[in-house]
Amino acid sequence: MEFTLDQIAAILSGTIEGDSSATVSRLDKIQEGKPGGISFLSNEKYESFLYETKATAVIVSDTLTLQKPVKCHLIRVKNPYIGFTQLLEAYSQLTKQSKVGVEDPSYMDASASMDEGGYRGAFSYIGKNCSIGKHVKIHPQAYVGDNCVIGDYTIIHPGVKVYYDTKIGAHCEIHPGAVIGSDGFGFAPQEDGSYKTIPQIGNVIIEDHVSIGANSTIDRATMGSTHIKSGVKIDNLVQIAHNVVVGEHTVIASQSGISGSAEIGKNCVIAGQVGVVGHIKIADNTTVGAKTGISKNVTKKGQTLFGFISMDLKDFLKSYAIFRNLPQLQQRVKELEKKD
């Protein structure tokens, strides 16, 4: 796709220094810019590349004072990083929304409905009584079980499995290999030491503007719903267990696991390889560092937690300053014992 700088400036509410009719068809790093590409400069450490780049155009701050002439055209905006992000988003939406229609072979049950502007890829499956909104993209080899609801403009990528009774909101994106609504881990111990499966008869509810990464899994509830609220962003390889609630605009990084019936507040940041035990609550605006284990309720809002078992970050750093010196302290104790 090719765009004029005038079109891009309109998207970003920016002003052009140079030829507004110049065209670009590619997004480049500023240090790797080539003709036909557009880059951005937001970090002053990279300013030297502005005077060397071969990119056709660069998005810069409206307060930037040039130290010498540039060969590229400039688009001046308030915040170049946000501006470039907006451009990436616009480009992504254009490319993702390009596919429409039905590819063969694909299957949709006669009782299901799909609104205008949608796409069904080859070998995709849509079960009974499903309601699919406007401009939804269901890519090849995706499976949508019976009685599912999918909101407008949601994208289901190749190989996604959406189990029965799942409800997915509008403007969501579910990446390849994700499994939504598989059985929760429910087994009742028996007197003979064996385990009996507990039927998982609930569902999964995903609200609007949620992103779910590749090969992540969200289990259906034992009863009621596993609930992912609006704006949540889940990375690849994340496990969300049955009856978990994840609050609005919380982000969860790769390889983290949230155990059954845990409730995560809104605007939380869960870093990679975090483990959360079941049946606890984590307060709003909590940040959890990588590899941290959460084993009890977090009731104070806005904390940063780190370590296993987790503790306040400042307390952990004080403790770490002590236990990293334990070998030397042990040697000193031995030497003192010998003197006695």
Results as ranks from 00 to 15, higher is better:
Ser216Glu: 00
Ile294Gln: 09
Val245Ile: 15
Lys296Ala: 14
Val288Met: 13
Val269Ile: 15
Ile228Met: 12
Asn267Val: 03
Cys268Arg: 06
Val288Leu: 12
Ile240Ser: 03
Asn285Arg: 13
Val298Thr: 05
Asn236Gly: 09
Gly213Asp: 02
Ser259Thr: 04
Gly265Ser: 08
Gly289Leu: 13
Gly231Ile: 09
Asn285Tyr: 14
Val276Met: 11
Gln239Asp: 04
Ile252Thr: 03
Lys314Ile: 06
Ser261Arg: 07
Lys301Leu: 03
Val246Gln: 13
Gly265Gln: 03
Thr304His: 00
His209Gly: 00
Asp284Met: 02
Glu248Asn: 13
Gln239Met: 10
Asp312Gln: 01
Gly293Pro: 04
Ile228Ala: 07
Gly293Ile: 09
His249Leu: 07
Gly260Ile: 10
Gly224His: 09
Lys233Ala: 07
Cys268Lys: 05
Phe306Glu: 00
Thr287Pro: 06
Gln273Tyr: 07
Glu248Trp: 02
Arg220Trp: 02
Ile234Phe: 12
Ala241Glu: 02
Ser319Cys: 11
Gly278Val: 12
His209Arg: 15
Gly275Gln: 04
Ala262Leu: 05
Ile258Ser: 04
Ile212Lys: 02
Val232Thr: 09
His249Val: 08
Leu237Phe: 15
Thr217Ser: 13
Gly265Phe: 09
Met223Glu: 12
Thr299Met: 11
Phe316Val: 09
Ala221Asp: 04
Asn243Asp: 05
Lys229Cys: 14
Phe308Ala: 01
Phe306His: 01
Ala271His: 12
Ala271Val: 12
Gly260Lys: 08
Val298His: 06
Ile234Arg: 11
Lys291Trp: 05
Gln255Leu: 09
Ala241Lys: 05
His209Lys: 13
Ser211Val: 15
Asn267Thr: 11
Ile270Thr: 10
Gly247His: 12
Gly231Thr: 11
Ser216Lys: 01
Arg220Gly: 01
Gln239Phe: 08
Asn285Leu: 07
Gly275Leu: 03
His209Ile: 04
Gly302Lys: 05
Ser295Leu: 15
Gly213Thr: 01
Asn267Asp: 13
Lys291Cys: 06
Lys314Phe: 01
Thr222Ser: 14
Ser211Thr: 15
Lys233Arg: 14
Val269Trp: 13
Lys291Glu: 06
Ser256Cys: 02
Gly307Pro: 00
Thr286Ile: 11
Asp312Ala: 01
Val274Ile: 04
Ile280Arg: 12
Val245Glu: 15
Thr292Ile: 03
Gly293Lys: 06
Ser261His: 08
Ser259Lys: 03
Thr299Cys: 02
Gly224Asp: 12
Ala221Asn: 08
Ala271Arg: 04
Gly275Phe: 03
Lys300Ala: 07
Arg220His: 06
Ile212Phe: 03
Thr286His: 07
Phe308Val: 00
Ala253Tyr: 02
Asp284Glu: 08
Val251Asn: 05
Ile280Glu: 11
Ser211Glu: 15
